[in-house]
Design a protein around this nucleic acid. Structure first.
Length: 405
RNA sequence: GCGUCGGUGGCGGAGUGGUCAAUCGCACUUGGCUGUAAACCAAGCGCCCUUGCGGCUACGUAGGUUCGAAUCCUACCCGGCGCA
């Protein structure tokens, strides 16, 4: 028996949507599930004591960040990342593969998953600042064996290889760890994407071997492979087949950029991954994206948006997103999302939270993050129930009709 | 009363003869954020016309000098400080 495994309860009749559970040494999570992002062993703004009432079953921390600070040895000494941060449930660690992108090709773009320049300008968002990027250079450089990083904190030089990433993740001690992959830019051309995906496959093999070599950790931690392939369908399918054939404990689907239609290929990706293993869609997403993912057979999701949007005033509601600091909410005495059962909505008004943001009280970002995380965990919980009840499609239609109105 | 310094856009505060509707910060308005270099970033912010290296009105008030003034001169009004 592997330390991490999936059990299915109900499969929807007309899609790959499924309800089940992922079992780990630190507990079981009911899927589909939203996994909160806790990069530096902290879901920004939320204390572990609040996880349960916010529906947080699990979180994903980051190898690169914890390696830089406080260092994997210290976390190990503390008893692992869960013990260190005071959370007893299941935890994942991402391998640092995303930082290959955000500190490499993504560096200086400010938009971590950048859009083409015109679309960027149209959307009114910051775009590539060439002077900034070139004055600092990339912070990550890739070669066949691994990636050299310049610390974004103090400029010191560091090196990750698949073996090293696994070694660090062994020390961090999460239930589910990931192979070291290369997250490519969505704008990468076919040739580069092919090259990068194939390298990621070689790294997946090396990560797996490194994990198996450590008998003790291999029996305590599950290892997920990662599918890449960018926006190219044939590369995605090829990647799913290759990584899917390697007998990982689960599969992450990486490099997803919804605005580049990569989610459209998801169904074909999952068609080529083993049915009996859990699938995680890395870094996604928005409520619309979650429905796409679930329909395609994804079990778990993680995304920075609920906490990042929350910190900056963006609030999820059943009627779409709102900007709580905006003038129209300063005297709105309703709750953030009318009808929401979260502790924030039960106790506070939009007017109050708008005030907190406008006066830079840290409680504003905290309450907003709490509500947003609840919104996503509750969404996946409701989706799960709809699958169990055999009405996933109806629920999807009704939710999106209102959300996107 | 005399002397002196000063009055610039919601506020603070640059500018001190042309390229100034006026640097910058704050405030304000709006937008963005998808494995977190992110409690962040961007745009707008006198009025008007969808437009434009567009028109109009503006730098205490009123005049004046000049091809041209927020910038120079005169008077007045207001404020700080000093002396009476």
């Amino acid at each position: 028996m592997r330390p991490v495994f999936y059990t299915q309860e109900v499969k929807a009749p007309n899609s790959r949507a499924r309800a089940g559970a992922i079992h780990t040494p630190h507990g079981t999570m009911q899927t589909p599930a939203f996994i909160a992002v806790g990069t530096k062993a902290s879901i920004k703004g939320i204390t572990p004591a609040q996880y349960q009432e916010l529906g947080i079953q699990s979180l994903i921390a980051n190898t690169y960040h914890l390696y830089l600070s406080p260092g994997e040895r210290l976390v190990e000494e503390a008893g692992g990342v869960g013990k260190f941060m005071g959370f007893s449930g299941p935890i994942m660690t991402d391998s640092g593969g995303f930082q290959v992108f955000s500190l490499g090709e993504g560096f200086g773009k400010k938009l971590s998953k950048f859009l083409p320049e015109e679309a960027t300008r149209e959307a009114g968002v910051a775009h590539y600042d060439e002077e900034l990027a070139t004055s600092h250079g990339k912070l990550a450089v890739i070669d066949e064996d691994g990636v050299s990083f310049t610390s974004h904190i103090n400029g010191s030089l560091h090196r990750f290889t698949p073996e090293r990433s696994i070694e660090i993740q062994h020390a961090l001690g999460a239930d589910i760890i990931y192979v070291f992959d290369e997250c490519t830019a969505p704008t990468a051309d076919y040739e580069y994407q092919k090259e990068a995906s194939e390298r990621t496959h070689r790294w997946a093999d090396r990560s797996l071997k490194a994990h198996r070599r450590n008998i003790e950790k291999n029996n305590q931690q599950g290892l997920y492979g990662i599918v890449q392939g960018g926006r190219f369908e044939d590369l995605r399918i090829e990647s799913a087949k290759t990584v899917g054939g390697m007998n990982f404990d689960g599969y992450g689907i990486g490099g997803s950029f919804s605005k580049h239609d990569i989610l459209g290929i998801l169904d074909k990706v999952n068609e080529n991954l083993p049915e009996e293993k859990p699938r995680h869609l890395l870094g996604i997403g928005e409520p619309e994206d979650i429905f796409i993912g679930v329909a395609a057979g994804v079990d778990t999701f993680d995304c920075v948006l609920p906490t990042r949007n929350g910190r900056t005033g963006g609030i999820y509601t059943k009627d779409g997103k709102i900007q709580i600091p905006n003038a129209e909410y300063v005297n709105d005495f309703g709750s953030l999302d009318p009808g929401c059962e979260c502790p924030v909505c039960k106790n506070h008004t939009r007017a109050y939270i708008s005030h907190l943001f406008r006066t830079y009280e840290m409680l504003g970002p905290v309450l907003a993050s709490m509500h947003n995380v609840y919104f996503l965990t509750n969404l996946t919980r409701t989706i799960r129930q709809s699958i169990l009840d055999g009405r996933f499609e109806e629920y999807k239609e009704s939710f999106l009709a209102r959300y996107k109105k």
